[in-house]
Design a binder for these strands. Sequence first.
RNA 1: GGCGGCGUGGCCAAGUGGCUAAGGCGAAGGUCUGCAAAACCUUUAUUCGCCGGUUCGAAUCCGGCCGCCGCCUCCA
Length: 470
Amino acid sequence: MSLQFFDTRRRKKLPFTPLHDGKVGVYNCGPTIYDFAHIGNFRSYIFTDTLRRWLEVKGFDVLQVMNLTDVDDKTIRRSQEEKLPLNDYTARYREAFFADIDTLNIQRAHVYPEATTHIDVMVELVQNLLDSGNAYKAEDGSIYFSVSSFANYGTLSGKRLEDLRVGERVSSDEYESKDDVRDFALWKAYDEADGDVFWETPFGKGRPGWHLECSAMSTKYLGHDFDIHTGGVDLVFPHHENEIAQSLCGIGGDFAHWWLHNEHLIIEGRKMSKSLGNFYTLRDIIEMGYSPREIRYVLAATHYRSKLNFTFDGLKAARAAIERIDEFHASWATYPEGEAVPEATEAIERAEAGFFSAMDDDLNVSGALAHVFTLIREINALHHEGRATQGLLPQLTELWEKFDHALSLFNPFGEEAADPESERIDALVAERWQARADKNWARADEIRDQLAAEGIELKDGADGTRWKRK
RNA sequence: GGCGGCGUGGCCAAGUGGCUAAGGCGAAGGUCUGCAAAACCUUUAUUCGCCGGUUCGAAUCCGGCCGCCGCCUCCA
């Protein structure tokens, strides 16, 4: 099967071919850096990371761009509450964001453009839209995009202008100065409440509207036509719809050719919200004692277009699944010398084919994981018979690294690797090994109990004991 | 009112016309082991919300019903 993705606009899975041979440009709607990102945000970033990683495994040269929104109503308000200049305020959360994605082993995008450092390209776009007649300056001094000037408005989300329930959910006075309540702001005129946050432009003093930055920055780094644009489902309308309208009218080209959207997650079956008390940042979950890899596993293991039920039972199940993965990986070192048996080679080849076809099918991570676990079971069964040998390791290792490149779930993350007490523990384990050789079961069990009390589990093998923190 | 999604074993979760309905977790029994742990083997959905229909054949397509949910406002 060839690589295919589900495109929101065309509403079906279609074979993916990039605009330029071997190269793929991807733009991800990123965070607004006014607070710590929550666990739902990270589902999006795990999704975009998986997309980028899979494209890389498939041999594409990927250019990934993710915006950081560093100016909007909430950001301005919060910075004022803390009496900090906007940049000082956002710096704290920009730093936290990068620390968090590093924690989850999410690869860094190649470019992280920020709104406040791209005012010039946004101003140019607004000017183009004014010149082309797609935008107008309202009485309040703000610049609005005229939705009715763009015949194809609504093609991404499947909404028709006449169906929109205008004014029903937002007080109408907010829209007093617009020609049409469905028009959206490109440029917001300066208001005293904005304090010192404003830019002087040919069309007035103010700040950019929300949708503008993504059109301006994506095309600046990826071109007027680029391959893939991603975001959460909530962004389909109006954010992405508006991006399309302003880009097509003010920049030209076809803008993004593929639109991929990830579903949200729910927590223990309920929508995540602060009022329900089930709102978690990544840091909250880490503090509860779950490892980054366990969290990544849970966030990755449900297909990105399905609602993910994030539960603590699920995190525990992920812990057990990862232990199985790590046990398998660790057991390679105990394989005896010898050529690979045909069953082993065949199992590895089946796993590779299955994993690739699942991932090629719109990033079916659950399906891909099933093939990994089947491989683990089959090779373990051979190992049980003494027929898993060193000879199969080159092929297995190569495939394992591909798996890990794609999903980053199969090798320990950096901070898991080293244990500060390994020397002391190794010494106790060695002493116990000797005690067992002397058939001094009392001493052997005493050491095992002592380590168990510290949360360290021992596994005796034929030629040594391995240990692990639970 | 408009548009759209979902309902698969105890839990999580693939599969969307046809081999025995993936896989993980959990549970039960067994093998191995000084005892454990891990590993291995076996068992755990004659059935995919319910009722009809289309078809040689449906969890997969169509219709109806029940239940849950999303978007139409900021939001991953």
